[in-house]
Design a protein around this nucleic acid. Structure first.
Length: 217
DNA sequence: ACCCAGGGTCATA
DNA sequence: TATGACCATGGG
């Protein structure tokens, strides 16, 4: 069994299933993936709740609304002017491609490249969408994943996004449910254990639990 | 007061 | 290709 699989088993045994992505529809996943860029999820929840209240959790509505008004709706998520433009750029593309039903028939690689070509969608956001909205076996790399696995000594801190993603995908079965749970568990471990309990007395990854802060690059 | 949060774009060298 | 500035709210 690969070490990638072992770490997963430890995390799952310790924290249990995380039930990601917390959304009712694939489109809500996509909106959340853009809104959560460098933002706390609790703030994103407020923004999404507001969109629901406004009847605006819909690509047609989001694409057509006045940008300043959309900015007010999503203000709690931070960077609201930037994210209003990103949401609208995404929705225009999403509608032009025929929404989820048409996009779900694309192969994963072309779909990934198309997502990356949308303004405001970078590698992590694209992979969030591929994994959690389209259930494709794509491993999401975030700052927590880098920190955890580099401090475990399993990867180098110098590796770029694509190399890290390939390392995970090459060492695991290409199972969307596995990748779903794994990424969620990494986020849970970073938040609940390393930040809230910095002394690390009951770490599921003993004896080398990674601690410390994320360096702001 | 500072640090961080489920990042990405753009200008510059 | 690789840094750095910039975006902005809310919680600990």
């Amino acid at each position: 069994m690969s070490v990638r699989r072992e770490v997963f088993q430890h995390l799952l045994a310790h924290y249990g299933p995380q039930g990601w992505w917390p959304a009712q529809t694939p489109f809500e996943v996509m909106v959340g993936a853009i809104l959560t860029q460098n933002a706390a999820w609790t703030n994103v929840e407020r923004a999404i709740e507001r969109l629901k209240e406004e009847g605006a959790l819909d690509p047609q509505v989001l694409a057509g609304v006045e940008p300043t008004r959309l900015g007010e709706w999503i203000r709690p998520a931070g960077y609201f002017n930037v994210k209003a433009r990103r949401l609208q750029a995404f929705c225009r593309w999403y509608l032009a491609q025929g929404e989820w039903e048409a996009l779900s028939r694309w192969e994963t690689e072309p779909l990934r490249r198309a997502l990356l070509a949308v303004h405001g969608v970078g590698p992590e956001t694209a992979d969030d969408i591929l994994l959690y909205a389209f259930e494709r076996p794509v491993f999401v790399i975030d700052a927590y994943t880098r920190r955890l696995f580099s401090r475990l000594g399993l990867v180098s801190a110098e590796w770029d996004y694509e190399r890290l993603r390939a390392w995970f995908e090459d060492g695991l079965e290409p199972d969307p449910a596995l990748f779903n749970e794994y990424h969620a568990l990494i986020v849970r471990h970073a938040k609940v254990h390393c930040r809230v309990r910095p002394r690390c007395t009951a770490c599921p990854l003993q004896p080398r639990c990674p601690q410390g802060r994320l360096s702001r690059s």
